[in-house]
Write a protein that binds this DNA or RNA. Structure first.
Lengths: 116, 116
DNA sequence: GTATATACCTTGAACTGCAAGGTATGGAGA
DNA sequence: TCTCCATACCTTGCAGTTCAAGGTATATAC
């Protein structure tokens, strides 16, 4: 039925939130994040590299992340960590996430509405 | 900071979900839905008419809604109701919603990840 | 008679995630 | 050796969604 399907339901902003959350705990590199998100959500959420790398670059440019290049086994890894600004942004995103999900869940479970 | 801001965080698919939810209980018209969503979510979520009308037309075309025109005080209202297909689609969206929100909330509250 | 609320609708811009493809190294297997 | 796969970085084009703004029209209030 659905002719194609990009921008899947309910995913806008979620990758950015998850990336900031993970990088607040410890430094990670892009390829690692792709697998960490899949693992940490129990396969529920999967994002490709085409999603992760642009977000990393944008967040770094905004000062939310810092990067550090490390050569490992001949390959180069770029490790990212959340800055203070990044953690502040994470807090704002979490608040917004709570606000939206509370509102939607309340209505879905059927409660207060229909009060003519 | 944020240069503009369309497609705000975490809103993709939410209007469609809320509309199907409300129209599963009782028939409503577009303008009414705009206000009902605002009221039912305690002002947390507001959608404009430019969001609601296109969704109503698309859902009707897909057979998820049926419409009925009623003249009221000289104005014409178009009432929509969810069909069986619409309720089925609502069920699918709710499942997806649970899947995503459970995964994100689990990670945000900090639990299983970081298990090196 | 002018403004506001109701009620429908469309258009253009902006943003986002996704698939697909492109480069390059190291190790495993035939 | 030669090929394939996993690692690791990156970019581009498409598609889909929300939003602000504007456009039409009627009834009511001032």
């Amino acid at each position: 039925m659905a002719p194609r399907k990009t921008n899947p339901e309910f995913m806008t902003g979620v990758p950015e939130l998850l990336i900031l959350r993970l990088l607040s705990d410890r430094e990670m590199y892009g390829y690692e994040l792709v697998q960490a998100i899949e693992a940490a959500t129990g396969e529920a959420i999967k994002v490709g590299e085409g999603v992760v790398y642009p977000i990393l670059h944008a967040l770094e440019e905004q000062g939310c992340l810092t990067s550090k290049r490390k050569p490992v086994n001949g390959r180069t890894r770029v490790y990212y960590t959340a800055t203070a600004a990044g953690k502040k942004r994470l807090g704002a995103l979490v608040s917004e996430w709570q606000r939206i999900t509370d509102a939607v869940s309340g209505l879905v479970k059927g409660a207060k509405h229909a009060r003519a």
